[in-house]
Structure formats: C-alpha cells, structure tokens
Nucleic acid binder design. Structure first.
Length: 827
RNA sequence: GCCCGAGUGGCGGAAUGGUAUACGCGGUCGGCUCAAACCCGGCUGGUGGUGACACCUUGGGGGUUCGAAUCCCCCCUCGGGCACCA
C-alpha cells in the first residue's frame, strides 16, 4: 500500500502483464475443478484457426467471452473456459506448398506464436484441456464418429454434380459457395460430376427447424432467421404427370397446385438424370449440345439476374392429370436439379419465370386466376395474388389462394395423382475434400465387398507423412498420388483381399462440430468423450463467436448434436444455450484488409497502450454485437481512465478489514447502485453500459477524495475502490490485480467474492420529482423518496413554474407515479 | 424480389412508456508550468434572448396516450442474409 507523494501513482502495464501472467500460470487460477460440487458454467469461445497470430478480431471476441467467464467465477460458479485449435485446413496446406514444408510445421509453429499472444492477452482460459483437431488423438474420434454416422445411414456416397473450385481444386459444400464463388479464394465455382461423401443433414431439416423455438431466448434473432432461411421449408404439393411413351410418371413439386389448370408446359433441369432419360431421339443432339453449354457456365453466370433463360424442347409430351391436356416437356437451366424433384410444371400466367420463358419460346399462356390486374399475355407480368379461379374445373367459384390450394390437393388425392407435401431448400452436407491436411475418411474400397468402414479397432487412419511430396492441387487428393501408394493399399477388413483406402479428407467443419464435447475429457483414449462429463457441464452456457458462422458451423454443430442424441451419446439436442455474435473490428468504415492497407496490428496496440486498455476499448466502444471502427475509439483514453482508477487504490488508507457501515453514505449508495447495475448489465451482455457505470463510480470516488482530505481513511472509499477493481477485472485483469494487491487483499482477484448490492443502500433520502403539465416538464423538485400522493400533488401544484404553465386553467386530472413523476392535465 | 435488423449531438453510444442526449471521444475555456506535454477542473444538442426564460429536437408523416426515441400504421434511407428454390 502506498499513499505517499513519492509512491507509485500509476501502474506499469508491462511489468504487471509479466507479473500476473506468471502468477496465474503458477497458481492454476483458471483451471476448472472437475470434481467441484459447485454449480457449473461452461463458457465457450469458437476455437481459433491458427492462421499466424492473434489479431484484432480474435481480441474482441475473446474479450467478450472473458467478461462472463470472470463474472461467473467470482459469483461462485465452477467455470470451465477452455481453448483449443481448429488446426486442420487449407491455409496450412497452401503455405506448405509455397514453402515446401509439411503443413504440420506451419500449423504447430503458428500455434506456439498465437498461444504466447493469448497468454499475454490475459484471458481466464483453462489451458489444461487444450486440444488440436489435427492431433491423431483427436481425429481418431472424428473418424469414429464418421463410422457411427455411416452405420446409421447418415453418411453416404453419391455421384452427382458438385460445386468445384478450380483454384483450390477441391469440391465445396453449398454453404461454402458465396455468390457463386469459393468463400475462401473467391474463384467462380463450376460444376463437376463426382462421387462424393455426404452427411444426410436433410433428414434433420424439420428437427433443426423445430428446435429453434427453444433457442429464441438465448440466440440472436438474425442467426435463427438465417438458419430458417437456409433450411427453407416450403409447403406445396407433388403432382404426377404421365409421360407419353413412358411407364413411370414424372413428379413435380409446386407451391401453387391451385394453378395446375394453367400449366402449359413442363420443365426439367438439364443436368438431372431425368432430362437425359426423357429426351426423344429426335431432340437428342440438340439436348446434348445444350447440356454441354450449361455445364460450361459458372454459377455466377447462371445466377446473374441478367441471365436470360434458355432451354430446349425435349420432343415429348406430358399429360396434365387434372384436365388431360397434352403439354410439351422442355429442359431449361432455370430449373435446378437438386431442388424439389428437379422438374416443374410451368404456369406462365401466374409465375414470372415461366412467363419469361414462355414468351421467349412462343409457348401458350393460359390465365386461370382473374386478379383484376392486366392480362399477363399482354403485360408480360405474371399475376401472383388472390383472385377468382377460371378455367379451373372444380376450383371455379373460389376466390382465394388458400382454399384454391386446399381444393387442388383434394382433387389430386382423389385422382391419385399427387398429394400435399413439404420441401426444403437445405441440401445434404458434402464433406469430402480432395486435400491432404485434413482428417482421412475412414473407409476402404474393396473390389469385392464395396465400401467398408474401417473397424473401430483399426482406427485411427493416420495421415501418411508425405514430407517432401508434392501437395499442389491436381484435382484429386494428394493421398491418391504415387507418394501415398503404400498408405493407400491395404487389405480389405472384411475379406482380406487387396483394397484401397478412400483418399479424400473431411471438411474441417466436421472437426469443429464436436470439439466442445472433447474439451471435457481431452485425453480419454477410450472414447470420443465422456457422457458423464458432458452431462455435468453441458449444454454450454455461453457460446461466443462471429456471425459469419451463422449457417456453417452453427448449423452443422446443431445437426451433429441431434445425431449424437439419437445415437444415445448425449442427453440433449441443442448444445448451446446462449450465443453471442460479437461484431467485427473495422477501420475507417471498412473491413481491415491488406489491399486497403488499413489493418491495425494488435501487437502494436498492446505495446503502446497495454492489454488492459486495448481490451477495455473493445468492450466499451459499442454493444458487443456491433462493429467497432478503430478510427472512432481511443485506447489512449482507456489507459488514462485505468490510471485514474489505479490512483484511487493508492489513496486508500483504511485497513483491509475496515467496516464501511459508518462510512460516507452517498459514496456507499453510489457503490451499491454500481454493484447492482454492473451485475445485471453484464449478465445480459450489455458490457459497454456496465463499463460506463464503473466509470461513474470512479468519478464519484474521485470527487469524494477531492472534497475531503481525510476521505482516504474512510472505509466507504475502500469499499468503492474494491468494487471498481473487481468490476475492472472482467475486462482489464492486470490493473485489477494491481489494485487488489494495493488494497491489501490476497491474489488473485479472480478468486474474490463478487458482492451483492445492499437493498437498503439502493434507496435514497430524496429523489428528483418531475412535474409535467400537458406532458411538458415544468419543474424538477427535490422530494423525500417516501413522499405520499397528496403531498406530491400539493407540492407540484404549488410550484411557481407549474402555476405559470397552467395560466389560470383548472386542473382536470393529476397522474402521480411515486416518487418520480407528477403529470397535470389542465381542463 | 423475399426475410431480418437498424436510423438519437460533431463522433462511439445511453435511455425499451415517465427528467432525451448517461458514459466516453472530440472541441473549448481555465488551473498547474518560464513554456509545452502530461495531469486537474468548468462548459459543450439547436434557435431566440443581456437575462430569468421560451420554443424546437431522437430519418419523414400520421395515430394511440396525461405522457412516445420507446407502442401501432404508412413512407424514406442504410446494413445484413437469401435469391431462377417452382
């Protein structure tokens, strides 16, 4: 403790950082006690990809998660706050190719660098459960989970057109195609027909949708909206059309079965198998040429809004099941092979796409709903609203879509030509990647037994050490190359005949779909995770990460949980109770990027202002979910504030056990108001406002000290400064530890007991009562908090400003809200 | 086109039916200093007025209410997601 003029008046952030890092490590301050009988809390940050070093984005995200982890620890919960590395992935492989090194070297080297930065950043992380998805001890269990999925029929291989990135020379999941381009390298994606592994996420489409109801309280609405959108539930009907000269009918999906009487042609996706099957001999040549053209075009071209619809007549006819009309069948690129049944009935009068196509190719247009708008045949604009049904047999006489659809489905059922149904936009998760640095798919292809999953006792399938081999993308996995021949050629686990390993690796989103279970027993080599530990700690109480994962990781990990639940491995469906999507750190209105040269170096910020100030700046700048523009904030002023707070601790003269009960009552009230506000605000994630309340308490304490030379000895000052230190420890742990030590308490402040506000001190002797006349504030009166309604009314009506505002008018009504407001309504 | 979210001082933001602009940044005036930096203190939404004070102000317009940034309707703008999904 020091209060002499020559004592330290400011904290040395560099020394404090070194000192407390060492202390926390030695003390194992943040290591969770697995045997604890206390109530548990699990705080989880999305684990980082070891891309080089900690950057501004990480810094913000991890600062947010740490606030809650530290609050809950001080509130007496046993908190688990683990960390690990999402360490498989393309950047490592690309770096390895560039530098001629093994991806592991780059990856684990980065982890060392990043780990040092994490430790300096002062997060309350439990390093004892650190894991790496690229460790054999981890990916063995990724493989085991794959085989479990396989046995349930939830992992399967199929041959179809897939998204292909020509630059990375690998396939991509739908979720990884952004605006028709590779989400990673932005190269336009093309289509390739390949045999690939999929997870059957579509089987869980409805379950994933249904369970969102339970997430509404804890997840941001926008993430749920994005997931709903992505799953894309669509209600409609299947309709069977008989094809002339073919036994099997063709089924189409439509959301508008009520317009069936207006169908004037049918369209199938050119790249579907169906198109090739249906095509007449006469049209064959034209169709093949057309298909070739479609395959050549990139997704960007295809999806362009200016893209004009094209197609070819397949030279055959379909029969409309409700009116027996013969309609032509076309192949056109505006119909997608993967959605619905890959075939549609086209109703040009009431669907704009069909109308555009019909007008271009001279196909007739039949209006079956009179909406009172212009005739689509003349206007070129399809009418899609409610109206009177015409030329629609049993629907004639109806006048709204809802009953039209219901009636149409009834007709279809009677004729056994269709039924109501639901379709989803969601596709199965394509998980094969033609790359080296990932988890090998544990399947062996045997010429006689076919696909054989690697038996449990032969797991893991370890990656071969291809050091020195050429990993450059060639369109097939490096594991399919000559260098891996020895690894690849193995006996079939079933018949022992010669067989080959699958040479693809898994999408890294598979690795990250289950890491939070593994944290609970990271070294268990007998199973993927311990169900008892999972049951004790999960679901996760707070998950923190970027919104960019809204429909990738966050959907995949939910799917995994549903499957794990169905496999009986976990006892819940939804692993994350609450989700916080922190915003991004931007600079001068734009995302930081090399090309713009507006990047802000985290290390330099920390060197200049210290960890405490940088973290405080992040937390105070804006609500956690909003972006922070580094050009708008001031880490220098954060540091200034922290020094102001620190200085208070140097001025405390009372002893550590001093009873604040007889201390300065005004300051005590300010302290307890702050305790209440900060506790509540942090719990609901309003961290920026909580910091503002701490600043107010610092200001109030400063004023108390400045007003009275003896105030340093007042225990109320100690109480205030103690809470300032505790509250600051959520964000700026180094200065908080320094203050705590100055106050004479034993370290660490992280083990201190978070105070509970004293209700008696939340009340005031007097409050400001506002008097409104006709809704306008006319007077502010200092009144006792215990004022009664008649007293308040009398005081209000007697106020000169109120009298002036009433201007002689009688009072019609007085509304009193004790003790803060009186509203007077003149006659 | 469809689905979300948001518009508050010069700036980041606070207030979610009851004192609009908390807290901070910036600005400005003053103190300390030979001086400057640091630090400390005052003032700081707009218009009018010497002043007490008055009027206006939460993207725009309307409504509900004693009272609206907050709730309802219409419109505008920005951000995000999806998008030839039948």
């Amino acid at each position: 403790m020091s209060n002499t003029d020559d004592g330290p008046r400011s904290y040395d952030m560099v020394a404090a950082q070194a000192k407390w890092q060492e202390f926390w490590e030695r003390d194992k301050t943040f290591q969770a006690d697995r045997a604890a009988t206390k109530e548990r809390r699990y705080v989880l940050d999305m684990f980082p990809y070891p891309s080089g070093d900690l950057h501004m984005g990480h810094a913000e995200a991890y600062a947010m998660g740490d606030v809650l982890a530290r609050l809950w620890r001080m509130q007496g919960y046993e908190v688990l706050h683990p960390i690990g590395w999402d360490s498989f992935g393309l950047p490592a492989e690309n770096a390895a190719i560039k530098m001629g090194e093994h991806p592991a070297k780059w990856t684990y080297g980065n982890i060392e660098t990043q780990k040092t930065s994490f430790k300096r950043y002062g997060l309350s992380l439990d390093w004892s459960t650190e894991l790496h998805t690229s460790d054999v001890g981890y990916y063995k269990w990724t493989q085991w989970l794959f085989t479990q999925f396989y046995k349930q029929g939830l992992a399967y291989r199929k041959n179809s057109f897939v998204n292909w990135c020509p630059k990375d020379q690998t396939v991509l999941a739908n979720e990884q195609v952004v605006n028709g381009a590779c989400e990673r390298c932005h190269t336009p994606v093309t289509k390739r027909r390949l045999s690939q592994w999929y997870f059957k996420i579509t089987e869980y489409a409805q379950a994933l949708l249904d369970d969102m109801a339970g997430l509404e309280a804890g997840w941001p609405e926008r993430v749920l909206a994005m997931q709903r959108n992505w799953i894309g539930r669509s209600e409609g009907a299947h309709v069977d059309f008989v094809i002339e000269g073919r036994e099997e009918p063709v089924t189409v999906f439509t959301t508008r079965p009520d317009t069936l009487w207006g169908a004037t042609f049918m369209v199938v996706a050119p790249d579907s198998e169906l198109a090739g099957e249906l095509c007449s001999e006469a049209a064959r040549e034209a169709f093949e040429a057309y298909l070739e053209r479609v395959k050549q075009s990139t997704e960007i071209e295809r999806q362009s809004t200016e893209h004009e619809k094209t197609g070819v007549d397949l030279g055959i006819s379909a029969i409309n099941p409700v009116n027996g009309e013969r309609i032509p069948v076309w192949a056109a690129d505006y119909v997608l092979a993967e959605y619905g049944t890959g075939a549609i009935m086209a109703v040009p009068a009431h669907d704009q796409r069909d109308l555009d196509f019909a007008r271009k190719y001279g196909i007739p247009v039949t209006v079956v709903i009179d909406t009172g708008e212009a005739d689509p045949r003349e206007s070129g604009i399809a009418t899609v609203g409610d109206g009177n049904y015409i030329n629609s047999g049993p629907l004639n006489g109806l006048s709204d879509k809802k009953s039209g659809v219901a009636k149409a489905i009834e007709v279809l059922r009677e004729r056994r030509a269709g039924a109501g149904t639901v379709t989803y936009r969601l596709r199965d998760w394509l998980l094969s990647r033609q790359r080296f640095w990932g988890c090998p798919i544990p399947v062996i292809h045997c010429p006689s037994c076919g696909e054989v999953p690697v038996p449990d006792d032969q797991l893991p399938v370890e990656l071969p050490d291809l050091r020195g081999a050429d990993l450059a993308p060639k369109g097939v996995s490096p594991l399919a190359g000559e260098a891996a021949a020895e690894w690849r050629n193995v006996p079939c686990p079933q018949c022992c005949g010669p067989a080959e390993r699958d040479t693809d690796t898994m999408d890294t989103f598979v690795d990250s779909s289950w890491y939070f279970y593994r944290y609970l027993s990271p070294n268990d080599d007998t199973r993927a995770f311990d169900p008892a530990e999972v049951s004790a700690w999960m679901p996760v109480d707070q998950y923190v990460g970027g919104v960019e994962h809204a429909i990738l990781h966050l959907l995949y990990m939910r799917f995994f949980a549903h499957v794990l639940h169905d496999l009986g491995l976990i006892d819940f469906n939804e692993p994350m109770r609450r989700l916080l999507n922190q915003g991004q750190v931007i600079n001068q209105g734009k995302a930081m990027s090399k090309s713009l040269g507006n990047g802000v170096d985290l290390g330099k910020q920390i060197d200049a202002y210290g960890v405490d100030a940088v973290r405080l700046t992040m937390v105070f700048a804006s609500p956690p979910e909003d972006d922070i523009d580094w050009a708008d904030v001031s880490p220098a002023s954060s540091l200034k504030f922290l020094q102001r707070a620190y200085r208070l601790a140097t001025e405390v003269l009372s002893a550590p056990g001093a009873d604040p009960a007889t201390g300065n009552i005004e300051l005590r009230r300010a302290t307890h108001r702050a305790i209440k506000a900060v506790t509540d605000l942090v719990a609901i994630g309003r961290f920026n406002v909580a910091v503002a309340r701490v600043m107010e308490l610092v200001n109030a304490t400063r004023r108390t000290l400045d007003a009275n030379p003896a105030a340093g000895a007042d225990a109320a000052v100690r109480e205030a400064v103690g809470f300032v230190a505790q509250a600051l420890s959520l964000v700026s742990p180094y200065v908080a530890e320094e203050m705590w030590e100055l106050l004479g308490y034993a370290p660490s402040i992280a083990n201190s007991v978070w105070p509970v506000a004293d209700e008696a001190l939340l009340a005031n002797d007097t409050v400001v009562m506002v008097v409104q006349v006709q809704g306008k504030v006319r007077a502010k009166l200092e009144v006792p908090e215990a004022i009664t309604e008649p007293e308040a009314t009398e005081l209000a009506l007697a106020d000169p400003a109120v009298v002036r505002a009433l201007d002689g008018r009688a009072v019609a009504k007085v509304i009193v809200r004790l003790p803060k407001m009186v509203s007077i309504v003149p006659a």
